[in-house]
Design a binder for these strands. Sequence first.
DNA 1: AACATTGACAACCGCGTATTA
DNA 2: GTAATACGCGGTTGTCAATGT
Length: 268
Amino acid sequence: MGRKPCCSKEGLNKGAWTAKEDMLLTEYIKEHGEGTGWRSLPKKAGLLRCGKSCRLRWVNYLKPGLKRGSFTSEEDDLIVRLYNLLGSRWSLIAGRIHGRTDNDIKNYWNTHLLKKLKAEGNEPRRHESLAKQTRRRTNASSQNNKKTKEKKKKGKIENGSNIEEREQVAKKTEEQWHMQDAVQAVSPNNHNFTSSSSSQDGTSNAASTSEVNLEENDSIGIYEKFQVIDELLLDDNCLLPINQCIEFNTESHMMLKEIYEEYFKLVS
DNA sequence: AACATTGACAACCGCGTATTA
DNA sequence: GTAATACGCGGTTGTCAATGT
């Protein structure tokens, strides 16, 4: 069962790559291509490195077409805009900037751009760490699985039944992630979005309220307001389409739509 | 000249997801 | 269906050169 054991790191080189190692790796990939499996590559290429290290060296340094040297102001601008839209999804950002790797951009962001933006007083809002987001999604999905299992146990969901309900939940969950990403693109100083929840303690239940009023409410910060929406959307008791659960005012709705569209253009 | 600090970036680590047996 | 492993990604650390004291 399962795969062969992972490579032992004993006796393998670590740290900076030598010119000889670079040459061996480059020659091997030129001859055999990239898709032959990183794990077995070092042995075949005569390298005392783990596959992970080889992949990183190739992708970030040796791969043809990589740009070296300083970033242009156009690249700076693009990185900032993409960060505002996508957060620290460096691989996605790198995908939009020809010749730059995710590692390049990440380093450049942390050592140059962030300082530059801070100095200009344009410090970007810190996005929730992806690890945290992932944990939240995993928890949500595992909780949903738990609930589904419990319902199955109780006979509430039978084969072939409640398909519509489950589709709605799935669709709603997907919409929630898109919504969350779009909302994160908004600058902290931008208060054009106005929202409030019918429940101030954040434990809204859309199934019972069926409507969330998103009018102005200064007592809750904009991100806290959207947090409420997040929670609402995570609640699989809410089986209504999102536009029936939440009402945006026209201005907010248009802005969200614009960001949402740009986000998808960038991602696709 | 010697040491400390800072900046830049290459490389590693750990985690989540995809894939495979 | 499950467990084990490979892969890819973001976050962090390590290292070395440049600069300051």
